[in-house]
Write a protein that binds this DNA or RNA. Sequence first.
DNA 1: CGGTGGTTTCTGGCATACCATATAACGAAA
DNA 2: TTTCGTTATATGGTATGCCAGAAACCACCG
Lengths: 228, 228
Amino acid sequence: MARARLDIQPIEEVQSLKSRTYDALKVAIGTMKIYDAGAELRLDERALSLQFGVSRTPLREALAQLEQEGLVRIAPRRGIFIVRKTKAEVIEMITVWAALESMAARLVTQVASDDEIASLHKLVDTFDSADLDAHMGEYSDANIRFHAAIIALSGCRLISDITHGLFTHVRAIRQRTIFEKDRARRSIIDHKEIVEALEARNGERAERLVREHTLKLRDHVEQFVQLA
Amino acid sequence: MARARLDIQPIEEVQSLKSRTYDALKVAIGTMKIYDAGAELRLDERALSLQFGVSRTPLREALAQLEQEGLVRIAPRRGIFIVRKTKAEVIEMITVWAALESMAARLVTQVASDDEIASLHKLVDTFDSADLDAHMGEYSDANIRFHAAIIALSGCRLISDITHGLFTHVRAIRQRTIFEKDRARRSIIDHKEIVEALEARNGERAERLVREHTLKLRDHVEQFVQLA
DNA sequence: CGGTGGTTTCTGGCATACCATATAACGAAA
DNA sequence: TTTCGTTATATGGTATGCCAGAAACCACCG
C-alpha cells in the first residue's frame, strides 16, 4: 500500500505570554511620542497586568527584558519609567551604527554574490533626485531598507542583531529628525557611490564611504536635533 | 548652636536577589570549562534555587537575562542549557570587536587628552620582546588591559558596554586560544604602532591599525582554533 | 502658618502553589 | 523480544499572596 504523503506544516509554536507581552509592550512604547510629554512617564505593574490580561509574573519578565534593552528603568518601590534617550546617547548609537555598518560593507565585498550586490541597485535607483520633492516620505523608508540590506548581505548575524536593537531606540528619534531635501539629495549620491564601491569589490573604499555617510548623520543630529 | 556635621557615607545599596543570582550564575558559567564536556550541559531551576538559597522567581529572572545575553538557552519543559558558541559565532564576535575598537581608536584621537594617551604607553612598555618568554601569562592580561583602555578612552559608553558583553562570551574561548610567542611578539609591535598613531592624532591610521590588528586575531582563530 | 513625626497606601521584590506538557517508565499485546 | 499505548514524573510557565520600603497624607505641636 502506498504510504500517504501529507504535506505537513509544523504546528505553529504558541508563544509564551512573556514574549507576547514583551512584543506588545515594545510596540506600545515604541509608538509612543515620549518626547512630547512633559513629566517622566511611569508604568504600573498591576495596571498593566490588568490591561494585558496576564498575571504579573510574565509581565515582570517582559519588563525586565525591556529594562535590559534600555527602554525602561525599574526603580524598586518607585515605579517603572520609560527612559528618554539623551542626545549624547543617540550620538553614541549612531557612532556604533557607523562602525558596524562600515564593517558590514567591508564584509559584503568579501562574501556577497554579484547578484546580491546588484540587488542594491534597485533600492538606490528607485529614487532619483528629480523624484525627491514628491516622495520624501517614501525615500525615508527606502533609505532605511538600503542600509538594512547592506547589513543583511554582510552575512554577519551579530551585526544584524545589534543594529536592529539600536534601531528600536532610534525610531522614537526619527520622528523628530527632519530630512531636508538637501540632505536627501546628497544622501542619494552617497548611496550610489557606496554601491559602486561594493560592485568594484573595493572593501576599503566601501567601508570608508559608509562610515563617512553615517557620521554625517551623526554630525547633523549633533548640530540640529534637540531632544527633550 | 553650631549644626553637627557628621561625615556620613551613603548606606551601601543592597543588591536584589535577582542581580546577585545573576552575577553568581554568570561567574559559575563563565569559569566552567564547557568545551571539555561531551554532552550538552543542562541546568535545573529547582535545583539551582536550592543551591543559591533563593526562590525560583529571582532565579528565573536571572536566567532570563542570561538567555537574552546568549549564555543559556531555555527550552520550555525541556530544560536550561548552557550555550556553546560555534566557531562562526566567535568569528562574528571578533569581527564586531574589530569594528567597535577601531571606531573607539578614532574617537580617542578626537576626545582624549595627551595625558590619557600617554597612559597607554605604560601598558605597552611594560612588556618588551625580551621579557616575553618569562611572562607570557602576564602579557595576556596586559594585552586585554591595553584594548580595554583604548575603548575606555574613547568616552563612548555604548562601545564599552557592547564589547564588555562580547568579552564575557569570548572568555571561555580564551582558555583554548594559544598565544604563541611569535604572535605575541608581533602583537607588541602592533600595539606600539597604534599608540604612535594615537599620539599623532592620526584617526584614520589608528583606526586602520586597530582594525587590522584585531582582524589578524580573527584570522588566527579561523585557522587554528577548533571548538567543540 | 509651618514643620515634624507618625500612619496609610502604593509598588515592586520575593515565595509558593498549581498548571501544562515533554519525556521517561512501564506494561500488555503481537 | 519488540512495539505501542498508558501512566508517572519532571520541568518550565503562570497565577497569586505576602512582604518591605518609599511616597503621600495627615494630625499634632510650635
